[in-house]
């Protein structure tokens, strides 16, 4: 039996409202708020990046993991599309910062928004095979969206970390499933700062096909139906897609809502469904069943069925809850500050 031993999240404290971005570009804020079903997004400060978010999330995961000594972690994988270095792993810094070096395997993963769940998938496999005792999977991003593009209203920042193991679990990984095709709905070429996307093509043949394909395949594999789950967490590129795909699959709003953070958080890309899972675990009870389906453009989805154990009650408040990070101690910034924070203004060296 393998699963989650500790989990943690981190979200920067700054936010920008849809109205503030729309004002700069002459766009209609109510249309964007309705179309994307979100009101604001998180903004990383200039000293915050995928590595710093990952370290804080990982430290929160260690707090919940209890007796796990960081040197027992045999693998660290960080999924992100905003690794600070083009060449040099993010994972080495994070492993060094939590004291998990030097006997540890490390790689940075990329697969658009599902790089974080890829890391979770591989970590579970390594633990299950017996190659490592514990493995640390992180999904983190300081997402990029081109100025004025629809993505700018949603691309946000955050991280979630999961320590996978085979004993002392707070959630058992009942099974996993993966669904992938070659679908060019969103991409960023080398040396380009901002990603490109296929507009409406990102919907039906991309997000909806893969999320429904993965969710249906996952449920068939474990012989379960939507009503057998207490909660479901989908990737959340905006507020509308996860609600719509949930309805298509037969889930109720109440099953989706605890992990549906995009309306107040934005799309944290590789952190999206992993952070949603942390918020869901924060309120889950022993015995609850959770379906998680990620999505990454390009395109594919990873599916997980989690069964929450009795240990959740002991550990959930060992670290800060995700909704507390999301809703408390936040500061709204104007577009100028946001542009400065996100290095959108070109300066002389």
């Amino acid at each position: 039996m393998v699963g989650i031993v500790g989990y943690g999240a981190h979200i920067p404290r700054h936010r920008i409202k849809v109205e503030e971005i729309a004002k700069v570009w002459g766009a209609d804020a109510p249309s964007y708020k309705k179309g994307l079903m979100l009101t604001q997004k998180s903004v990383p400060s200039p000293d915050t990046d995928t590595i710093t978010l990952s370290v804080t999330a990982a430290r929160n995961a260690l707090l919940r993991a209890g007796k796990v000594n960081p040197v027992e972690i045999g693998a660290i994988y960080i999924g992100s599309e905003s690794h600070p270095y083009a060449v040099k792993p993010s994972g080495t810094v994070v492993a060094e910062a939590i004291g998990a070096t030097p006997e540890i395997h490390c790689a940075d993963f990329e697969f658009a928004c599902k790089a974080g769940s890829e890391a979770m998938f591989v970590c579970l496999g390594l633990v299950k095979s017996g190659y490592v005792k514990y493995a640390l999977a992180i999904g983190a991003d300081t997402s990029q969206g081109a100025p004025g593009d629809a993505l700018e209203y949603s691309a946000s920042a955050g991280a979630a970390a999961f320590i996978m193991g085979s004993d002392n679990l707070l959630a058992e990984a009942v099974d996993t499933y993966a669904y992938m095709t070659d679908t060019p709905d969103f991409w960023r070429r080398e040396y380009q700062f901002y990603p490109q996307h296929g507009g409406r093509f990102t919907g039906e043949p991309a997000y909806f096909k893969h999320v429904t394909g993965c969710a249906e395949g996952m449920m068939k594999k474990v012989g379960m139906k939507p009503s057998d789950f207490n909660y479901v967490v989908f990737h959340q590129p905006n507020g509308k897609f996860p609600m719509r795909v949930g309805k298509m699959l037969g889930f109720k709003k109440e099953q989706i809502e605890p992990g549906w953070l995009t309306p107040r958080l934005g799309n944290t890309y590789s952190g999206s469904s992993p952070i949603g899972l942390t918020a869901t675990l924060d309120i889950a009870k022993p015995g609850d069943m959770i379906l998680m389906v990620s999505y990454g453009s390009g395109a594919g989805s990873d599916g997980f069925v989690w069964k929450v154990t009795d240990r959740i009650n002991e550990v959930r408040d060992k670290a800060v809850r995700t909704t507390k990070l999301l809703d408390e101690n936040i500061t709204f910034v104007d577009y100028g500050t946001y542009a400065k924070f996100r290095h959108k203004i070109r300066k002389n060296d």
Binding site: P46, D47, T48, I51, T52, V55, T56, R59, P84, A97
Partner: peptide
């Protein structure tokens, strides 16, 4: 205390 980026050595 939080882990942050302290400085960047140019681009």
């Amino acid at each position: 205390i939080e882990f942050r980026r302290i400085q960047t050595d140019g681009h």
